[in-house]
Structure formats: structure tokens, C-alpha cells
Design a protein around this nucleic acid. Structure first.
Length: 481
RNA sequence: GGCGCUAUCGUCUAGGGGACUAGGACGGGGCCCUCUCAAGGCCCAAACACGGGUUCGAAUCCCGUUAGCGCUACCA
């Protein structure tokens, strides 16, 4: 038995979309599961829209996701002469013919058909041209395309995800396979390449189902065995429409920027339109590979749920040692112009990551702990100040007084908690009346790690400065804490 | 319009004729824990699109309807 060869074939006309990324992932998963080979082929034959920058973005995106290809990247543009030769061979064998109709003539015919409410189908006028006439026009340098002669028989295949799908040949047009400039049309190029690259399984988006009968006809005309086709469902936006830019973040780079971890993205994407069966959600990479089969792919389109992605990222985040986050957090701190002063970031990361869902949140919260003046009052913080009134400020001042003595060498979470408890008790305060103002003064919010740990991580000097500074604002409006 | 694909909680899904009082997860709501939150634990609301068959029995099989989506280029 021959090992499978699959390919991912993006066109570099835009960024790496989550839909494309998922298709790539499924191909990769299938190849790894089966011991097969993944070929990366860049379909850059649309000269108008393809750019090198896009190619690079796609390659980078795949690299980030951890989708490793075994062969390539191959560029479709390099195979133009083979595409042309294949198309011409079909003409020579009477399976395709030259068509001299101009774009304008075709448009007119199409418009006429539409006017009568008829489906347009090329009328084969050029197919009926006598051989001498075709030769005469060719010799005269008249531009022509090559059309494939589609016969009326049924074309069907057993799709690995959908089961049997069939089309009637008579519903297909005699489609163009070679342009008048001798470059191949998509369906021709794909089939020519997939044959040349010995692709055994074509795993691609659902939107290619209607191309498949044309490609099958081409495979047969070229005398080649069919690959297995597996058409994976689309990814939709929250409104049920095909996912696109107007849905916001749809490029994998967007998620990378937001601080999504690659393994989380991979796990999430794998489960979008595929299920191993059963209940498991958070799966280690090698298990996903072990479990992955084409049969587990869903027929139905799936809505991209960013909230669930973030939840999953949170799962990975809390499982990840702070050590592995340091570099990324430092990079983001630099981006917002904050130096870490050579501090060990690990305790700060540990302090915040359990409550964070993205690396971006981790970095922002680390920044606030490095420099509490960067904190911004949120709604809950503001509400607390409003509720407590002057007690907010006086409690802060008392807390600062009580904590001051710990400043030389005894600034530990344990001692801080003890002092705070004593202070609260002797003033007849509930612990929360002491804790919450500190939390708000330091972070701007009523949500954080336990206050004593927060104080420890911020450090004695910065904590006390900040506490005193905010406590002294009572007379002010406190517009920007 | 033509052709095709699809149809289980709001979302991702489990389910392959009886184990279904339809399970899990995200999100939502509540409770516990707690200085707050997150995490964790417990609980609640929430779905088989509709109509016909087949069958002793249908979420599961068949047909139709409806709806959604895709394709319908000398784009990929």
C-alpha cells in the first residue's frame, strides 16, 4: 500500500485565513496520522493578486501553527508549460477543442441567456468548426482558448466526508482549461499538478465540491486514477455567513497578535469541524494526530466561536510554566515602551496568568504590576470608590502606615497578610475594607490575585508610593487613578 | 434561475434503530470556596427544522418541504 500524499494549496492573494489554516491543519494531521507526506504548493497563477508578501505571511502563519510541510513550497507558476502541454494533449486526443469566441461574444451570449431566464451553457459553436477553419484561424494568429469537451454522463465519486456525490455531465459547461495567453485555468492547473505530484488524497474546502466533477473529468481524460476527495465544511462567522474580514479577526496573525498560544489555536481549529468522538476537548498534539481520521470530519459548516477559543487558550495558559512566557511577555512590554529593569518576570507572570486568557492580558497586567501608575480605573474600581467615599482614602492611608515597617526586608505575602489582618481588626474594619482599596489603588480594578500577593509582587517601594499617592487624592476628583 | 451541499441546545459537538428522561464543552444564570476575581466543585435554563413513510420501535434509514450555505469567469 502506497503512503498517502496530500497537499495544501493556498493562493497568496491574502492573509492566511482561519479557514485555510484549518484546511492546512487537517492535511497535516492526516499526513502525520498516516505516515504520509504533506506537500505545500503555492498557487500563484493569479498574477494580478498574488504577492510575495502574502506568500511570506502564509508561510509564517503555518510555521507559527506548527504545520510542517514535507515538500515545497512549490510554486504553481513554475509549471505553466506542463499545464499547457496537458491541455494541448487533450486537444490532440479530441477531448478538448480550440475556441475562438471572444470575451465580448461570450458575455453577450450569457446576457441573452440570462434575459430569457435560461442557464447559460456554451453552445459549442467552435467545436463544430471544420478542422481547416481552425487551422486557418490559428495560422492567422487569431487568439483562442482551449475548452474541455464535457460529455453528458453522470460524474460521481465517494467523498471521504460526504459519501457519494454526483453531478450530471449535461449540467456542466465546456469549461475553458487554457487561456488565450496559454496559461492554465485553475481546474486544469490543479489536476495537472496533483497528478504530477502524485497526490493521493485531496483534502480541501467544501466550496470546491462543484469543481470536483470538472476535475474528475480531467483526470479521466488525462488517463489518470482519481485521488480520494475529502471536502471539509466551511467556517462561518457568528452571523452564519462565510467567515470574512468583516467579521473582524480572521487571519491567524490576528490571533497571534492577540496573544493566543499556537497549541491552543491548533487544538481549537482541529475541533472545528472534526471530532474524535466522545467528550474530550483539550487534547495534546500527539493525541490529536493519533485520533485524526477523515471519517471524523463533520459535514456541517461550523461557526467560529472566539469566546471558546479564548477559553481554550486560558486552559493552555494556566498549564504553561511562566518560564516559557517570559520572552513573549518581555517583547510585548517593550512594545508598550516599558522596561523590565532586568527584573525576573516569572513571579509577575505567575501572579497574573491564572486569571488571564491571552498573553496580551498577561503582558498588560504584568506592566501594571511593574508600574502601578499605568493602571486604569475600570467601572468596578470606580464603583468601589463611590461606595466607600472618604473611607477609601483613609483606609489606604492606614494600610500604608501599617505596612511601612515591613518595607525593610519583611515584605512577604505571609507577613503582609498578617499585618493587614491586625490593622483591620484593630480599626474594626472587615478585611475586605482594607484589601479592596489596595487592590483598586494598585491595579485600578477590583479583580486581581490575592492582595497580599499583589503587594509582594509589586514590591515595597512602589506599593507604598502608590498607596500614599492615591490616598492623598481625596480632595481631588480622582479622575485618573 | 440552474446545479450541489447541509440541517441535534445561542455556539462547538456526542449519538450509527431500543442503552435517550438526548450526553459533554463554550457562553448564560445560581450556589459553594474567598479579601475580590479567576480556577475548581455543585446545580439550573437550553436542541433532534417541518411533513410523510419504513419498522414492534426512529435523533439515527428513505422521500418530500422549508431554510441556510456554496458554485455557476479566459479568479483561485
Amino acid at each position: 500500500m502506497v503512503l498517502p500524499r496530500v497537499r495544501f494549496a493556498p493562493s497568496p492573494t491574502g492573509y492566511l485565513h482561519v479557514g485555510g489554516a484549518r484546511t492546512a491543519l487537517f492535511n497535516w494531521l492526516f499526513a502525520r496520522h498516516s505516515g504520509g507526506t504533506l506537500v505545500l504548493r503555492i498557487e500563484d497563477t493569479d498574477r494580478e493578486r498574488s504577492t510575495e508578501a502574502h506568500t511570506k505571511v502564509i508561510l509564517d502563519g503555518l510555521g507559527w501553527l506548527g504545520v510542517q510541510w514535507d515538500e515545497g513550497p512549490l510554486f504553481q507558476g513554475a509549471y505553466g508549460s506542463r499545464h499547457k502541454a496537458d491541455a494541448e494533449r487533450l486537444v490532440a486526443e479530441g477531448k478538448a477543442y480550440r475556441c475562438f469566441c471572444t470575451r465580448e461574444e461570450l458575455d453577450t451570449q450569457r446576457a441573452a441567456a440570462e434575459k430569457v431566464g435560461q442557464a447559460f451553457r456554451y453552445d459549442r459553436r467552435c467545436f463544430r468548426l471544420p478542422r481547416e477553419e481552425v487551422e486557418r484561424r490559428g495560422a492567422a494568429g487569431m487568439p483562442s482558448t482551449i475548452r474541455f469537451l464535457v460529455d453528458d454522463k453522470e460524474i460521481a465519486w465517494d467523498d471521504a466526508v460526504h459519501g457519494r456525490i454526483s453531478f450530471q455531465g449535461r449540467d456542466l459547461d465546456d469549461f475553458v482549461i487554457l487561456r488565450s495567453d496559454d496559461s492554465a485555468i485553475y481546474n486544469m492547473a490543479v489536476v495537472s499538478d496533483d497528478i504530477a505530484m502524485a497526490i493521493t488524497h485531496v483534502i480541501r474546502g467544501d466550496d470546491h465540491i462543484s469543481n470536483t466533477p470538472k476535475q474528475i473529468a480531467l483526470y479521466r481524460a488525462l488517463g489518470h486514477q482519481l485521488p480520494v476527495f475529502a471536502h471539509v465544511p466551511m467556517i462561518l462567522g457568528p452571523d452564519g455567513k462565510k467567515l470574512s474580514k468583516r467579521h473582524g479577526a480572521t487571519a491567524v496573525g490576528d490571533y497571534q497578535d492577540q496573544g493566543i498560544l499556537a497549541p491552543a489555536m491548533r487544538n481549537f481549529l482541529a475541533l472545528l469541524g472534526w471530532s474524535p468522538g466522545g467528550d474530550r476537548e483539550v487534547l495534546p498534539p500527539d493525541e490529536i494526530i493519533a485520533l485524526f481520521t477523515l471519517e471524523g470530519i463533520q459535514k456541517k459548516a461550523a461557526v467560529f466561536d472566539a469566546a471558546k477559543l479564548e477559553w481554550m487558550n486560558g486552559q493552555y495558559l494556566s498549564a504553561l510554566p511562566a518560564d516559557e512566557l517570559v520572552a513573549e511577555v518581555r517583547r510585548r512590554l517593550e512594545q508598550i515602551g516599558l522596561s523590565d529593569d532586568g527584573r525576573d518576570l516569572r513571579p509577575l507572570i505567575d501572579a497574573v496568568k491564572a486569571r488571564a486568557r491571552t498573553i496580551l492580558q498577561v503582558a498588560n497586567r504584568v506592566a501594571v504590576r511593574l508600574d502601578p501608575s499605568r493602571s486604569e480605573l475600570d467601572e468596578k474600581g470606580r464603583a468601589l470608590i463611590g461606595k466607600m467615599g472618604s473611607a477609601f482614602y483613609s483606609n489606604l492611608a492606614r494600610a500604608a502606615d501599617a505596612l511601612e515597617p515591613l518595607g525593610n526586608g519583611a515584605w512577604t505575602a505571609e507577613r503582609l497578610l498578617a499585618s493587614l489582618k491586625v490593622m483591620a481588626e484593630s480599626n474594626g474594619m472587615k478585611l475586605g475594607d482594607a484589601m479592596q482599596p489596595i487592590r483598586v489603588a494598585l491595579t485600578g480594578s477590583t479583580v486581581s490575585e490575592p492582595v497580599n500577593e499583589l503587594l509582594e509582587v509589586v514590591g515595597a517601594k512602589r506599593s507604598l508610593e502608590r498607596l500614599r499617592e492615591v490616598a492623598g487624592r481625596e480632595r481631588g476628583t480622582g479622575s485618573s487613578a
